[in-house]
Every structure is written in structure tokens, then in C-alpha cells.
Computed example of a mutant assay.
Amino acid sequence: MSAALSTVLEMAREPGTSRFSASGVAKLLDLQQQDLADLARVHRNTLRTHPESPKLQTALRDLMRVISAATVIQPDPQRAVFLVKNEPIPAFRHRTLLQLVQDGRTEDAIGYLESVSAGFVG
């Protein structure tokens, strides 16, 4: 694991626990709390009152998996996050990786990033 990815993961970790912090992930991705709640398909209060929610933690884990895969092709964490949030992908009807995660297509997003890192272009 790269030092940059370790730093990103530490920023996203809930201090003193083994779970992700909703506010840390929102800050990392520069998302509003409501947008993160929508992405995770939970009520926005869940982020504050039930951060241990399995549904929320699964969504946060999926986001971090995609960011991890993005850092393989873009080692700069800020650029990797930009790639995940903003780069439209023609193979997915010009949706972003973040939109794929929101659609429940995390494995497709990771598969795409792995194919790009292996040298596939297109």
C-alpha cells in the first residue's frame, strides 16, 4: 500500500474505531452530508446518529475501494479523488466512477480502473 493511500485511509477512519467516518469521507470527497447520505441510501441523520450502520459502512467501504483502485493509476490522492468524482467514462455512458458506486456498480468501477492500470485504453 502506498504512503498516499495510507494517508487517505487514515483521513477517512473514525478515530478510535475500525470503521470509516462519514464526515471524513465526505470531507475527502468534498461532498455535502446530504449527498453522501443519498449515495449511501440512508437518511442524513444516520451519518451522525448511527455511523456504525452496516448500510452506511458498506457504502463508505465501496467508495474507499474505488479510491484505492484509482490511486493505482493516479498516485496523487487529490487527483485520484478528482478522477473518481469528475471524469466521465464513455464505456459507462459517460457516467463517473462515483455515479457507478451510487448505482451499486462498485465492481464495474474497480474492474474499469484495473483494466486501465493494466494498459487497456478506451
Score class of each variant (00 low, 15 high):
F82P: 00
L28I: 05
R13L: 05
T71R: 11
M1E: 13
S117L: 03
E87W: 07
A3I: 14
G24Y: 03
H50Q: 13
T46S: 05
F20Y: 13
L47C: 04
E114S: 11
S23N: 13
A69R: 05
L5G: 04
H94D: 15
R79C: 10
S21T: 08
L60R: 03
Q99A: 15
L47P: 04
D38G: 10
G16R: 01
N86D: 10
A118T: 01
T96D: 10
Y112W: 10
Q99M: 14
V42M: 02
S115F: 00
Q74P: 00
P77L: 07
V72A: 13
Q33F: 13
L98Q: 10
D62I: 03
H43K: 09
Q34S: 14
Q57M: 05
K27Y: 10
A12P: 07
V116N: 07
E107S: 14
M1P: 11
K55E: 14
F120D: 09
Q78C: 06
T106Q: 08
V25Y: 01
S18Q: 05
L47N: 02
L5V: 03
V84R: 01
L9R: 06
V121P: 00
R95P: 02
A26K: 07
R44T: 14
Q32S: 12
V116K: 09
R93S: 14
M11Q: 11
E10D: 12
S6A: 15
G24I: 02
T46I: 03
A109M: 11
V66A: 09
S68I: 00
G16Q: 01
R65P: 00
A80Y: 05
Q78S: 08
G16L: 03
V42I: 06
S53C: 12
D35T: 13
D76L: 03
S18A: 06
A69H: 09
A40S: 06
N86V: 04
R41F: 01
P90W: 03
L60F: 00
S18V: 02
I110H: 06
L56N: 02
L36F: 05
S23W: 12
S68W: 01
L28C: 05
T17Q: 05
P77G: 10
S21R: 06
A91V: 07
T71Q: 15
L47A: 04
L9A: 04
I67W: 07
G122W: 00
V84T: 06
E114C: 01
V8N: 04
Q78G: 07
D62S: 13
G122Y: 00
H94Y: 15
G16E: 00
L113W: 05
